[in-house]
Amino acid sequence: MATPQDLRYSKEHEWARVNGDGAVIGITDYAQRSLGDIVYVELPKVGEQIKQFGSIGVVESVKAVSDLFTPLSGEVVEVNGALDGDPAAVNRDPYGDGWMLKLKLSNPDETKSLLSAEEYDKLAAE
């Protein structure tokens, strides 16, 4: 799966789709493939304030558990409730149906510290 050009990436394999002072967050195709069959996603609550690179949840696959870090700071305005019944969406469509949460950014400048698609691909290839 090609890494979408319009997103920004963290070294921890999360992506952010930034739109003004809002952003959608998820994990990358590389991350979902490394984890294998994802069976459960534990997300923060709506209204929670989260800090860039802080641990905000957990992604469970059949035999692994991985912390979920936020690439950006802000207030959680929505979480993807559909993942409760269909965690496989993260495997199927990591950049679409498999999105995890929406943020109202507290510091949109942080976006600059994230990687471009090209930079991220380089990292993932290592």
Binding site: V39, Y40, S61, V62, K63, A64, V65
Partner: peptide
């Protein structure tokens, strides 16, 4: 639901 357990978590 083994991801709850000590050998993984």
């Amino acid at each position: 639901l083994q991801a709850r357990e000590q050998h993984i978590r």
